[in-house]
Simulated assay, not measured.
Amino acid sequence: MSVQNKFKIFKYIIIVASGALSYGMLSSFAKIAYSQGYNAGEITFTQALLGALILWSIVIFRSIKNGKFKLLGNWKLLLAGTSMGISAYTYYLSVEYIPASLAIVLLMQMTWMSILAEWIFYKKRPSSVEIISCILIVVGTVFAGNLINIENFDFPLIGIILGLAAALLYTLYVLFTSKLGTEVPMFEKSALMTTGSAMMILLINFQSITTSPNLDLGLLQWGAFLALFGTVIPPVCFTWGMPKIGAGLSAILLTLELPAAVFCAFLILNEQITFVQIIGVMIMLGAIVYLNISKSKREKQIQSTTVQDINYESK
């Protein structure tokens, strides 16, 4: 591989990593917004609404630029967006009760939840690699969440429940919507789903949002900031970089969301991170990376076997 090609791959790795890091820092800034008097419903709705407006602006601009101003309506994507909205709202709500570093650790349980869900809904039995990875993730969670010292907890159990619920909801969202809207352009797909997300969050919090005294410039600023780094930048980075580096490496880079969230919580919120928690995060990251590398190798073997069979049959 030439130096120029290596530089291009490195560039796309940085782009995908930037999207993951962008996601990771959201919970810490949401926590700051809460300290200023805003709540999860107001923050998530404003983020989704402004995110949808930004994405629709991009869709319209690109359509006019290409001379094809035609929007494809897709109610399934709108409906899928509602599940995304519930997951985001539940996650942001958990951050009101528990440290941001713990919230992201709980959200990462979607890795083993997705394996379990595939087994339940699609009868896809987990491999030995997946079982080992799941066990390591659970062990890592105990350390990363400092769950060993449970007697020292100074926050409600509801925060833990909400964090796990967010992981479960996000798992189901990914499971049932991964194959939806494959014919719809990326920005329009994101715009439709973000619109559905905003609609669902508004429906859940309609009374509190419409009667809130906090609908001010400060909320608008927080919503714009979170929309930019949580709704616009990550999809653009992933769409731009992932096709260039492949699904396996992309999945590994997405795990950067976990250390990014923990580091931001430490740096921005002054949350105490112990050595045991760092070990737990490393165990979780190692398990997720190990799982994705194994999946990538297995997929390559399957593709190689298929090509060989085709070549053999053609002879």
Rank of each mutant, 00 (worst) to 15 (best):
I278W: 13
F176P: 08
I13K: 02
S314H: 15
V276G: 02
I150A: 05
T111S: 11
G85C: 09
M199G: 07
V174E: 11
S294F: 02
I54Q: 03
Q301D: 08
I9K: 12
P126W: 12
L256K: 08
F206N: 03
T274D: 07
Y170E: 06
E96K: 12
T239N: 10
M186K: 04
L77G: 03
L78A: 10
Q277I: 07
S208C: 06
I252L: 00
S212Q: 09
V142S: 06
G37E: 02
V236L: 14
I43R: 08
L49N: 08
L192A: 08
V236S: 05
T306V: 02
G85H: 12
L249V: 15
L168S: 15
N5A: 13
P126T: 09
E118S: 13
T111G: 02
S28Q: 05
A30R: 06
I132R: 07
S22N: 07
Y173L: 09
T274S: 15
V138H: 02
K68G: 03
A144G: 00
I279E: 05
G246C: 09
P156V: 04
Q308V: 00
Q303C: 00
Y173N: 10
E271S: 03
A265Y: 02
G19I: 13
Q221W: 02
S2D: 15
A48S: 13
Y312L: 13
G24K: 00
S83K: 01
V142M: 11
W119A: 15
L291V: 09
K295F: 10
Y290L: 06
E42P: 10
F225C: 03
I86H: 05
V236E: 09
Y173F: 14
Y38H: 13
I288S: 06
T274E: 12
W119F: 15
Y122K: 14
T239G: 05
W75C: 13
N205L: 14
G24C: 00
I310F: 11
N270C: 03
Y12D: 07
D216N: 15
V16A: 12
L202P: 11
K179G: 00
A33T: 08
I158W: 03
A198M: 10
L107N: 09
Y38L: 15
K11T: 14
T274Y: 13
L136W: 06
G19E: 10
L203G: 08
L175T: 01
L136F: 14
Q272L: 11
F229Q: 04
S101N: 05
M242Y: 01
K31E: 01
W56N: 04
L203W: 08
L256S: 00
D216M: 06
L169I: 11
Y91L: 09
F121L: 15
I98S: 03
F155P: 00
G24T: 01
V262K: 04
I132V: 14
T141R: 01
I273G: 08
L215P: 02
A17L: 12
I137C: 01
